[in-house]
Design a protein around this nucleic acid. Sequence first.
RNA 1: GGUCGGAUGGCCGAGUGGCUAGGCAGCGGUCUGCAAAACCGUCUACACCAGUUCGAAUCUGGUUCCGACCUCCA
Length: 489
Amino acid sequence: MNNLKIYNTQSKKKEPFTPVNKGKVGMYVCGPTVYGNAHLGHARPGITFDIVYRYLLHLGYKVRYVRNITDVGHLVNDLDEGEDKIIKKAKIDNLEPMEVVANYTRSYHLDMKKLNNLDPSIEPTATGHIIEQIELIKDIISKGYAYESNGDVYFDVSKYNERHNYGKLSGRNIEDLISNTRILDGQSSKKKNEDFALWKKAKKNHIMSWPSPWSRGFPGWHIECSAMSLKYLGTSFDIHGGGMDLIFPHHEAEIAQSSISTGQDPVKYWMHNNMITINGQKMGKSLGNFITLDEFFTGQHEKLSKSFSPNTIRFFILQAHYRSPLDFSNMALESSEKGLQKLLRSINTLEKIKPSEKNSVNTNSYKKLFYEAINDDFNTPILISYIFDVVKLINNINTNKVLIDKKNKNELILLMKTFCFDILGLKNNKVSTSKNEYFSELIKILLQIRTTAKEDKNYTLADSIRSKLEKLNIVINDNKDGTDWDLDT
RNA sequence: GGUCGGAUGGCCGAGUGGCUAGGCAGCGGUCUGCAAAACCGUCUACACCAGUUCGAAUCUGGUUCCGACCUCCA
């Protein structure tokens, strides 16, 4: 069953997955910088690595999933005189920096929860690991791969490259980096442009700063992930994930830092999700073309034709492979919404089907296809296409075109629920309400009244009940055996 | 400028040397008091130009266009 293959950014190939330690998986994913509300782009790694996490759990691995919260803030740009983006935001909002951090961390958690992402095992913050970061920087200095300069500390990239390969993840070579790195203005204390900061001295008015052997300041952006992954996952762990935009320089720098400190290549499988685009262009904070998740959920954005549920957003993202770009549009989202409803409805239909003595359904053949799809580098769009084959099958059973026996019916229910709910993490609309007997009984009474009205050919009353229920998102369908109802959201 | 990746039908998106991807939308039917749902049928593809091959949307070369990264970004 476990023939999982994962595409490794470093080798540019799909590789069979075998964990460093048998039966256990360590996974680190780069989380958000909490200085704004999460947008659609943030949903993608959240969901992508939630699928990885869910599937590894499904396969029976003991998984430690670490996702950091970057709450130190980092330089907005080089012209910004060392002011970091959390502080910048704090000034705008007239809040304490940690108030900004707390606020957006909470809102990020809420959005991830709504999208039905499982909580990571550990969610460490950069500010909570300043000591670990300082210790790691000290270690790198002691090994001769970093230097202090005017209170800043920089990683010596060219020295590292003498014995290691700086660029092995991103496919860059150091000569290009040296000639192409943008030349900073004269204020930088870097010796070489390709070097990157491990520690930055804070300006006087810089509120978020900590004492260190070199200056009162704050850690460089890349060091937190090295420090925290080392602490919680050890010197060599299985999966490191994040957005494609982090490959260079962030992850390249991380490999360099960790390799110097531990003497080991830190990560076995590097996984990167592609971007979500809007009109073909990357949705990003800095471009200002983003739509926040909350705006999707409420429909409060000029570019949105309506609101979209977290379940729809999740399904939309899963209908594209995580390594492909995904283009946002209202039409694409609406078609995902309709497809999802069809899918969820069919699972409810399947549960109600009366099995027959005869059977012409081969559940195992679908099971095989489902596993093949997910094992192939988490190919959720292919998996979903197979799921829709089963949806069609279910509807054919329902209209007596195909027969299913009790054994296959139960197996098919289990298969669909396992893949749709446990692995893909979709939510069944009906769960919360159909379990509510009181609510169901009320609906039944209304439908009985409507049936009587229909028998009396009082269609005005019958249609009025139907349309009023529809306004409450309760959709009813007449069929040969009576009337079904569904809660659509 | 450098590095890397794309270009698939009305839209979103898989895939791959020969076998229907799938979803949504459209059109024509069946069913229905009317709807809805469902079912059946149906239409529109692989940027362009060469080449390899029995056969290419899939491989090779070139052209055009687009994107990502090189600076904070998921």
